[in-house]
């Protein structure tokens, strides 16, 4: 079976093959592992790789797989759907700003028609008592403000949209 896993901005093609009690895992055609003694129970899977037994907790939620290992948690997205996005800098998303986290829209220090420079603060969102300033991705004119101060907003919803010359 072949499919794709995404971790942050990296995509991995993986294949899993079963032969008797052995599993072959190939990642990006270069990393090849032979795994045995695979057991899945509730929220933990165990397998043996190179004389070491790994017991790994996991969770699933819609198109995501969460894996805990060595104190870190890894979040993989299935197929080509994009990652949690929190990673993706707001600047990359063209002509609007949105919050990477859900929260309270504290302030929109701009008005419709305002001319703003790249890096100007367009909105301030607060979550868990931390204020996050959302800055203009480039020079432009404020075209649309989709929320008002005091609104609860979700992650990745455009808050302020710009007309970019």
């Amino acid at each position: 079976m072949e499919f794709k896993l995404q971790y942050f901005d990296k995509q991995y093609s993986v294949t899993l093959e079963k032969k008797d009690d052995l599993y072959g895992v190939v990642i990006n055609d270069e990393m090849k592992y032979q795994v045995s003694d695979f057991v899945r129970q509730q929220n933990i899977i165990s397998f043996r790789l190179n004389e070491t037994i790994y017991n790994i907790y996991f969770a699933e939620d819609r198109d995501k797989v969460y894996v805990a290992f060595g104190g870190d948690s890894f979040i993989f997205d299935l197929e080509k759907r994009t990652t949690a996005g929190a990673r993706r800098p707001v600047e990359e998303r063209g002509n609007s700003v949105s919050s990477p986290m859900p929260g309270l829209l504290v302030k929109v220090p701009v008005s419709l028609g305002d001319k703003v420079a790249a890096g100007a603060t367009l909105a301030i969102v607060e979550a868990m008592k931390m204020q996050n300033e959302l800055r203009a991705p480039s020079d432009g004119i404020v075209k649309k403000i989709n929320f008002k101060e005091g609104d609860q907003i979700d992650a990745f919803q455009p808050i302020v949209e710009l007309d970019i010359e």
Partner: peptide, 16 residues
């Protein structure tokens, strides 16, 4: 540790 984490994810994802 991404290799180990990927192996684990592969098992789970394949079932999904």
């Amino acid at each position: 540790d991404i290799g180990i984490a990927l192996i684990a994810a592969t098992f789970i994802a394949s079932e999904k």
